[in-house]
Nucleic acid binder design. Structure first.
Lengths: 162, 162
DNA sequence: GTCTATAATCCGATAGAC
DNA sequence: GTCTATCGGATTATAGAC
């Protein structure tokens, strides 16, 4: 709390005019982050599964690359939430995962994708894409467009049918 | 330190007969974990790249699934290392990544793999495989063998040529 | 709405008896 | 080698003046 107060230019006590306690402040950050993620992702179920998947890959990488601090805090501080707050954030995360799983299931149903278990494939793809945040820095060797292009190639090949 | 002391059945002060300070204790854990990882992974460069990659996938998932606590600590406490200790652990991690990158590069050189950038592919594969630890629990819906089989399928398809 | 001051608690680490 | 006791410092949160 003292570090936050210093960053925003007030004394620590003044923060309690804006939040009842530290837990509420942290929970608000994580909840807003997940709600923004869910709201920002637009999926069109009338499109071909491969197009929907390509949009997901592009969206996921860009959304997270634009918010490295929120993503870092959301992951590192997740275990400092109270059990109730943790359950709420986890429920939002599961809703987001289900959006991807619906795309993979749609492609599998049409035999356009070859996926043994859509739940595992969902977790595998999200882990791979979120991993970009651990190393990507703007101005590095590759542009974000180049990074997205290669990840899309790998994700596409990993799920498409023969 | 008090929590560790309680777990091992001594008072907090007694721990300092075994470690000079908390930082050394943490660094020792992370360093040993990474050295064990590097030592346990056997790669045979005379084998076909696809066989070497399959072995890496199998090894990586099993090694990490067998040590969920060490993996969790290694990730969550990495930023609590001093800059010097952090650099040493990062160097060990990079050595491990290079082992996988050598496999991918070998397959790309023989045109058996189709990979745009081996460094990105390395990070993508490791992120995907390490993600297993966030959800896998022994005794769950799928056995570790089944999980490995599907991840191997996805990794293989994501890198093989045409 | 912000400040200073402080309460109450927790932490890593040390000292000294046994 | 472990214990009890404690030091010095950091933490979240509150109280009350302005």
């Amino acid at each position: 709390m003292r570090a936050i107060a210093t960053d925003v230019g007030v004394q620590a006590g003044a923060l309690y005019n804006y939040t009842p306690d530290k837990q509420s402040l942290l929970f608000g950050l994580l909840q807003t982050h997940m709600e923004d993620l869910l709201e920002a992702f637009r999926d069109d179920a009338s499109q071909p599964p491969l197009d929907r998947l390509r949009h997901f890959v592009d969206f996921h990488i860009r959304f997270h690359a634009d918010r490295p601090d929120e993503v870092f805090i959301s992951y590192m501080e997740l275990r400092n939430l109270t059990p109730d707050n943790f359950a709420q954030v986890e429920a939002l995360r599961r809703r987001y995962e289900n959006r991807l799983e619906a795309i993979l299931q749609s492609g599998a149903d049409r035999a356009e994708f070859d996926i043994a278990d859509t739940k595992i494939a969902t977790l595998a793809v999200i882990a791979m894409l979120t991993g970009v945040n651990t190393w990507f820095r703007a101005g590095g060797r590759l542009s974000l467009d180049q990074v997205i292009a290669q990840y899309w190639n790998m994700v596409r090949k990993s799920v498409v049918a023969g």
